[in-house]
Nucleic acid binder design. Structure first.
Length: 415
DNA sequence: TATGCCGGGAG
DNA sequence: CTCCCGGCATA
């Protein structure tokens, strides 16, 4: 029976379910409709989505089209959703480009020559198992520390013994010392994050504060305190190089990644601008943290029981850089690139530019969670952040992040 | 009971 | 790989 039902359900799904986005997505609706029919299994009626809107996901077997969104419309190239608008109007749709959540929203994107295949500069981390922002913070702190050290006579003139990493140091502390001899001779010091064993092969999630800006679709505030230093990190896959100047980063990208023979800016079409991002780093915080590493510091010889506890650390850093009470406008999210790639939200974009979407009222702070207790249960405790389900409700399930729709850990409202 | 999401199945 | 859901843990 399921086999006979499948084609019919599939066609039905093509017509009505998820309306336009599935129509854009082609066979996806058919597959889902067929699957729904084939499975024939359902959740208990109590938990089943109610009504027209709620039944959307299972519309292959169920409800009519949602009144919130009109029927199928032209959707030639699956533009991104208004939930996550990440490319300027008029720019061609570049899925790989839009995957990058580190990019400051609204910044102009250069358009590469048509037909030039490019590797994805970065891929959004699907899930963060680490403490939020930990590895990223370590990298950035280390990188920024290098900046200060490179101009400091204190360590540049220090004996070589000071440059040998102590065995008990954490990776980031090693990184603080080790690359002193490996600075590039181009004037811009460089630090290859990919060589750091603490760094993943893909760009790490942004700093909590930075993530907030990407998450909420705002570029990082341009007002910078004197203690805030700007770094530029290459987003190219497996690179992650951090430079102190934008020009240096552009040159790096042009030469290394784009394969330009010359690093002259006039030869560039500006594409390299797309492959790096800015990082704001509080220098006073970093140097405070470094003071304990300095050979001149009396505390250097006393290895702290927990080096991370010794630093002012993420909370101070993030609170120093940005106001934390940012409204969680669901415009940008870590899952945004994926969602935009799908036809799903893509057609929401071309059909409902101003959706009557319920604005989440929660105020998310970017305070990292405290270190989890050892021996914690394998299942991580439920976060107190409102999730898509709670924010949008079952009736607006189409607004959920993909993970929530799939009953996975929410990626939009991270804990 | 509602919710979050892990684990696993289907394609 | 994406998509989906049963079922469990938790609030």
């Amino acid at each position: 029976m399921g086999a006979r039902l499948a084609p019919a359900a599939g066609r039905l799904g093509m017509l009505i379910q998820r309306e336009s986005q599935w129509a854009c997505a082609g066979g996806g609706a058919a597959g889902r409709g067929a699957r729904a029919a084939r499975r024939g299994r359902g959740r208990p009626a109590a938990s089943r989505p109610r009504g027209a809107g709620g039944g959307r996901l299972r519309a292959g077997v169920g409800g009519p089209a949602s009144p919130a969104r009109p029927g199928p419309g032209p959707c030639p190239e699956r533009p991104p959703s208004p939930l996550q608008p990440r490319h300027p109007a008029g720019r061609p749709w570049r899925p790989s480009a839009l995957r990058c959540p580190f990019r400051v929203a609204g910044a102009p994107r250069p358009v590469p020559p048509a037909g030039t295949p490019r590797p994805r500069p970065c891929r959004c981390p699907r899930r963060r198992r680490d403490p939020p922002g930990k590895s990223r913070l370590d990298e950035v702190m280390a990188a920024a520390a290098l900046t200060s050290l490179s101009t400091s006579t204190l360590l540049l003139g220090a004996p070589a013994a000071a440059c040998s990493p102590e065995p008990g140091l954490e990776p980031w502390k090693e990184a603080l010392v080790r690359p002193l001899g490996s600075c590039s001779s181009s004037g811009d010091w460089g630090w290859d994050l990919a060589s750091d064993r603490s760094s993943p092969s893909i760009p790490s999630p942004p700093l909590p504060s930075e993530a907030a800006h990407f998450l909420f679709g705002e570029p990082a505030p341009k007002k910078r305190k004197s203690s805030v230093r700007v770094l530029f990190q290459c987003l190219w896959k497996r690179c992650g190089k951090v430079l102190s100047t934008a020009s240096g980063m552009q040159r790096h990208i042009r030469l290394v990644h784009l394969g330009r023979r010359q690093a002259e800016p006039e030869q560039s079409d500006g594409e390299e601008d797309f492959y790096y991002t800015e990082l704001d780093v509080g220098m006073d915080v970093l140097t405070d943290g470094l003071s304990s590493l300095s050979p001149a510091s009396p505390s250097a010889s006393v290895p702290p029981a927990s080096p991370r506890l010794e630093l002012p650390e993420p909370r101070t850093l993030s609170s120093l850089l940005h106001p934390l009470a940012l409204p969680p406008v669901p415009v940008l999210s870590p899952v945004a690139p994926r969602e935009a790639r799908r036809g799903d939200d893509a057609c929401q974009g071309c059909l409902a530019p101003t959706r009557p979407e319920p604005q989440p009222t929660t105020v998310r702070t970017c305070v990292p969670t405290p270190p989890s207790r050892l021996g914690a249960s394998p299942r991580k405790p439920r976060g107190d952040a409102k999730k898509c389900r709670k924010v949008y409700g079952m009736d607006h399930r189409h607004l959920w992040c993909t993970a929530c729709r799939w009953k996975k850990a929410c990626q939009r409202f991270l804990d």
